Simulated scan of single mutants.
Amino acid sequence: MSLIADVVGLVFLLIIILIFVALSFRVVREWERAVVLRLGRILAMKGPGIIFLIPFVDKPLVVDLRVRTVDIPPQTTITRDNVTVSIDAVVYYKVVDPMKAVSMVANYNMAVLNISQTSLRDIIGQMELDEVLSKREEINKRLQEILDSYTEAWGVKVTAVTVRDIKLSPDLLTAIAKQAEAERLRRAKVILSEGERQAATILAEASKSYQNNPMAIQIRFLETLSDISQRGGLVVVVPAGKGIYPTLATSMALANRLKKTEGSAKKEGS
């Protein structure tokens, strides 16, 4: 009986040792770190790989070091020019100091989310609607700076912030569309007026050139007649005064003299 009792005792002792050994070792993955608490006090940060713990004395708190994301739900706020908008964003962050992340904040995930919501509303409240719609990069930068100022003490680093969507009321969207259309019409009229001004300037310079060179205006006139003659079904009446077109006037005078000479010859023959 004593031999059986000794065997049972040895087996029981072996089982206890195996359980003790199993509880003494812990595997920490590559992207994790274990902050070890010994009797409630921070002992050290261990990992990755196999770490040794004293059962019932050491307690490991495993912290993930990978980049995490938090979705900021749509925040309805009023801009500086009293326009209601709804805006949401995404925050990317990671733990850079596991000891601070464990000891300085109870839940850094929820803390990042809450401070992101309040900071986003504060930033939008300080901007006008046009700035909110056109300066997303500035909003991202300002929000990241504010979050970094808070999370640095928690051992958390905000790597990026992205504004995802900005929603406006249907009435406001209609008003913005009308404003954009009016702006396009204004630009079209300005461009047309600028073209007319440039054309008038060029024509004024051309008139001075024609004034100094009368033959140039005649050549231009003949080119214009050539262009008009290509259109069928037109009757063109061309004035040819001496002061305006001397070459054409001289030609017409010679033609009239020939007609008068032919008329007088016919009378003498009869």
Rank of each mutant, 00 (worst) to 15 (best):
V83Y: 12
R197F: 08
G40Q: 00
V83A: 10
A199V: 11
D171N: 10
A249M: 12
A153H: 04
N82F: 13
L203M: 14
G243N: 13
E223I: 09
E30T: 15
M110A: 11
P98S: 03
T79N: 07
G125D: 11
P239G: 05
T201W: 12
D171L: 15
V112L: 04
R187E: 09
L113C: 12
Q218Y: 04
E32P: 10
Y93A: 02
E138L: 06
V112F: 05
I176A: 01
S251K: 14
V235N: 02
T69Y: 06
V235T: 15
T118G: 12
I124L: 07
P60W: 02
P214Y: 10
L23A: 10
R33P: 11
M215K: 14
V8F: 06
A5I: 08
V90I: 14
G155Q: 01
Q117G: 09
A265R: 14
P98N: 05
N82I: 09
R142P: 01
P55Y: 06
Q198E: 14
V163W: 09
V237R: 08
Q218D: 07
V11A: 15
S229D: 00
I115L: 10
K266E: 07
G263N: 07
Q117R: 14
R257M: 09
P170D: 07
V112R: 01
N114T: 10
L168K: 02
L225W: 03
L234Q: 05
L61E: 10
T174L: 10
T151M: 03
A175S: 11
V238H: 08
T69F: 05
I123C: 12
A153L: 01
G49V: 07
F20L: 13
S119Y: 03
D148M: 12
V11K: 02
A153P: 01
G9W: 03
I51T: 03
F25A: 09
D6Q: 12
N212K: 15
E30V: 04
Y108Q: 02
V67H: 03
T118P: 13
P74V: 02
E262C: 04
R80K: 15
D165L: 14
I15Q: 06
G155V: 00
V57K: 08
K94N: 06
S264I: 03
P239A: 02
M215E: 13
D58K: 01
M99C: 09
N256W: 10
Y150W: 05
I17C: 12
Y150P: 00
I17G: 13
T261I: 15
V63T: 00
A22R: 15
R29K: 10
T118Y: 08
V11Y: 05
P55M: 01
Y210H: 11
R136S: 07
A180Y: 00
L61S: 04
A216R: 08
S193A: 10
